[in-house]
């Protein structure tokens, strides 16, 4: 659809009109590197893999992705431009997808700029590059899921700060559902089947599967479905709330 491309282009260029995008990317890269080398003990582990890099992504994204997605709809509603935008000949679905793709490609750009760490590990040892590629794909999909959630929640409010906080909260819940620390806490109170179901909905557990180097169709389907469902919810939310 041509209109998706036009929406995408405007939105993507919009990130770079102010220096905020560059600042964002630099901080993202610095934080990712700091966590990998200092907290993740990249050197001390003495292993030629990038697990100490990728294991932080779900938690870095928890704050960085909502920052990308918060403005998508909240800003349009606040400034009233949504009325201009959605009376152009564009379907709500195309508008939602175009904006989402812009955010996703921007996140992908930030992720792609972490490539020096890949070069580093190849210089130092002989990592399994198949696992690294799988991990990058997993990380990108995870970013997409966060941004889809963020799109929907951004459409819910005119206030970007509220959109940010809501998105962090929801993404956090989707993350910890599968985190090892939470399972024992809930373990006694919740039946095992429910626990397993919850865990299967978790963004984290699917990410952890992919980072091991196994790209399972089920994990891919999970992310595709998560992104699809949240974008559909975003389209419905936009239609319901656009005129409020």
């Amino acid at each position: 659809m041509a209109s998706v491309a036009h929406v995408f282009r405007r939105e993507f260029a919009g990130y770079f009109i102010t220096p905020v995008a560059y600042v964002f990317i630099v901080i993202f890269l610095a934080l990712a590197a700091a966590l990998t080398f200092y907290v993740g003990a990249f050197f001390e582990r003495g292993r030629a893999d990038l697990l100490s890099f990728f294991q932080w992504h779900p938690w870095i994204y928890l704050f960085f992705m909502p920052a990308i997605s918060m403005r998508l709809w909240a800003e349009e509603r606040k400034t009233g431009t949504i009325e201009l935008f959605l009376t152009l000949p564009v379907s709500t679905a195309a508008a939602v997808v175009g904006k989402f793709l812009a955010a996703w490609v921007f996140a992908g750009l930030a992720l792609a700029l972490t490539f020096p760490i890949w070069l580093t590990v190849n210089y130092l040892g002989e990592p399994d590059n198949g696992v690294v590629v799988a991990s990058y794909i997993g990380s990108f999909l995870m970013a997409g899921a966060y941004l889809a959630i963020g799109s929907c929640l951004s459409a819910l409010t005119r206030n970007q700060v509220i959109a940010f906080v809501l998105t962090v909260t929801v993404c956090f819940l989707f993350n910890v559902m599968g985190a090892g620390a939470v399972q024992p806490v809930l373990g006694d109170a919740v039946p095992a089947e429910l626990l397993e179901t919850l865990s299967s909905f978790s963004l984290l557990s699917h990410f952890n599967n992919i980072v091991k180097g196994v790209i399972d169709l089920r994990d891919l389907a999970y992310y595709a479905l998560t992104i699809g469902v949240w974008l559909a919810a975003a389209a419905i939310t936009v239609d319901l709330k656009k005129a409020d």
Binding site: T79, G80, T81, L84
Partner: peptide, 13 residues
């Protein structure tokens, strides 16, 4: 062709 109330525009463009 529609000019909404207050003529909202993308101010950063």
């Amino acid at each position: 062709g529609y000019l909404p109330e207050g003529a909202p525009l993308y101010g950063d463009m």
